[in-house]
Simulated assay, not measured.
Amino acid sequence: MRIIPIDTVDAPELADYTRLTDVALRRALEPAGGLYLAESTKVIRRALAAGHIPRSVLLHERWLPDLEPLLEDFPDVPVYVGSEESLEELTGFHLHRGALAAMHRPELPALEDVLAGASRVVVLEDIVDHTNVGAAFRAVAGLGADAVLVSPRCADPLYRRSVRVSMGTVLQVPWTRIGDWADAAPRLHDAGFHLAALALSDDAVSLDEFAADPPQKIAIVMGAEGDGLSRRALSVADTVVTIPMAHGIDSLNVASAAAVALYALRVPPTAGEMQPFGADA
């Protein structure tokens, strides 16, 4: 490995790792710079297995043996090594998950490519909490759905917290961004998808009823925390679906709701399909 000791945290080559706890800064810096941060050796392994390319790595010396086999194919990638104190000063938090890797952000695929062969997808409209985005991806991976679509204003699935909460599944589950509903809805319909909006509505059908005879292809549309789905999303939906609730509770956390809906609408896996997207890669 190309190991470079950290002499000063102000070195320009370390700019990818500065102020990682500043969410507003990272939201602007990472997509514009064509990068995302993979945190922990497990997530880095999954990123590499997905074909993503590292541009540098940051870690404490004791984690070098764990990273060495992962980086055998990338001998020219700089590996910055520092003390716990210098790493915390640089990043803004205690680096206790082994390592960070600045990865080149992959180009998003076309919507039609993501939908090809899919029968169950989740659409996240304007979800602002990175934790919820990551948890939704984990539900999609764990429950055997095929892809995630995110709206223009949805939080970045490749933000560090999203990646971590998803257990790295955002690097495995096919996903892309969609345009506004005027563009996205016709394209989903053209691909044969029934748009099922999870929302409270007077004309909603229960999830049990909808799951009793589900369409062959379903796009489960999930709305933002608090406000729920936009009027535009509801207007293009083929069916509004609600999860029956008890004890006066009217809704679930968006990631929990996605998991419930995905389980109810799951397509039974065939032999050998119980670990989608190379879950242990």
Score class of each variant (00 low, 15 high):
5 P>V: 13
7 D>H: 15
10 D>G: 09
22 D>I: 00
25 L>D: 07
25 L>N: 04
32 A>I: 13
37 L>K: 04
39 E>C: 14
42 K>M: 09
45 R>S: 15
57 V>L: 10
59 L>Y: 07
60 H>G: 12
64 L>M: 13
86 S>A: 12
91 T>K: 00
95 L>K: 00
96 H>A: 12
96 H>Y: 07
99 A>L: 04
101 A>N: 06
102 A>H: 05
104 H>G: 12
107 E>G: 11
115 L>Y: 04
118 A>M: 12
119 S>L: 11
126 D>M: 11
131 T>F: 07
132 N>S: 04
133 V>M: 03
135 A>E: 02
139 A>T: 05
145 A>K: 04
146 D>Y: 08
147 A>F: 05
149 L>T: 05
151 S>Q: 02
153 R>Q: 12
155 A>H: 08
158 L>D: 09
159 Y>A: 07
164 R>C: 08
166 S>V: 02
176 T>W: 12
178 I>P: 03
187 R>G: 14
190 D>H: 14
208 D>G: 04
208 D>L: 12
211 A>Y: 00
215 P>F: 02
216 Q>P: 06
225 E>P: 10
226 G>R: 11
237 A>V: 00
239 T>M: 08
250 D>K: 01
259 A>E: 14
264 A>K: 03
272 G>T: 03
273 E>Y: 04
273 E>M: 09
277 F>H: 08
